[in-house]
Design a protein around this nucleic acid. Structure first.
Lengths: 138, 138
DNA sequence: TCTTGAACCTCTAGCCACTAGAGGATGTAG
DNA sequence: CTACATCCTCTAGTGGCTAGAGGTTCAAGA
């Protein structure tokens, strides 16, 4: 029993153009086609696409997913490499959080500005002055 | 008295192609040119570009910066709109942090996997799992 | 069997905010 | 006057899709 691309899309919650895109970049194998060139998928493709979707939701890049898929197909191998890829990704996420938190703190200080005129606005001041210490003292 | 694009770049830490890009999208005004068509900048341009750079460092999008620059040039206006733009951006940053934190938690659980075979690897299991993971959408 | 129309096809271009490189012109110091 | 650092424009690429044009195929109903 084969699936059309629309059925695959519904079952995996992955949009049709995205499925075709994954095929194009080689994440999904080229499926068989009908005589009229329409794609027909097998149940395995649902599983593979769900794997991809879940990895994307976890923020893995396509290159990492390509590696994970390669490793996942090799049941007797140690999962050390899988661990390493995940750990590297986790470190990046932590790093992003740290940078965004610093950003949030700076922005939170800025928004305490209580609606004065532009010429005395703390936000504008910070943006104009940072690292330069030019003017606008009070 | 006037600066070449290279000098402007050095003073602001903004790369030359980026400066030309900002001109192209209208964030920076077109500067005067020498007879040989080379750009020459005034000290005001240093200030404006520093404003842009700092806003970018704080994660403001180009469209937001365009608005901020417009407002910044109007000293008698109330800074309510500036406040709103900043607040909206802050909310987005908070949102991103929340999503990344959920991601981090999930990844941290996953990396506790202690190097078994792929066939029993917790990470692969999680990724292959059909269960939808709605709390991790972005 | 024929017709309708939903779903499919390919191809190109667009999104954001740059970045890289080719290939050539300009500006300035010695 | 030469050398060469710096500048110029133009095109294309990045990641991970998304949108649209313009045409074709499939399956259900008449």
């Amino acid at each position: 029993m084969s699936l059309t691309i629309g059925e695959l899309s519904r079952q995996t919650q992955v949009k049709i153009p995205t499925i075709r895109y994954y095929e194009q970049i080689g994440l999904l194998a080229e499926p068989i086609r009908t005589e009229g060139q329409q794609r027909r998928y097998r149940p395995e493709d649902v599983r593979r696409l769900n794997f991809i979707r879940h990895a994307r939701e976890l923020g893995f890049e396509v290159e990492a997913i390509r590696q994970l898929l390669g490793l996942a197909g090799d049941p007797d191998r140690s999962c050390g490499e899988v661990h390493d890829i995940t750990k590297a990704h986790l470190d990046e996420v932590k790093d992003k959080i740290a940078r965004l938190t610093a950003l949030r703190n700076e922005l939170e200080t800025m928004v305490t500005c209580d609606h004065r005129r532009i010429s005395e606005c703390r936000i504008i001041e910070v943006l104009a002055d940072h690292g330069q210490c030019q003017h606008l003292e009070h």
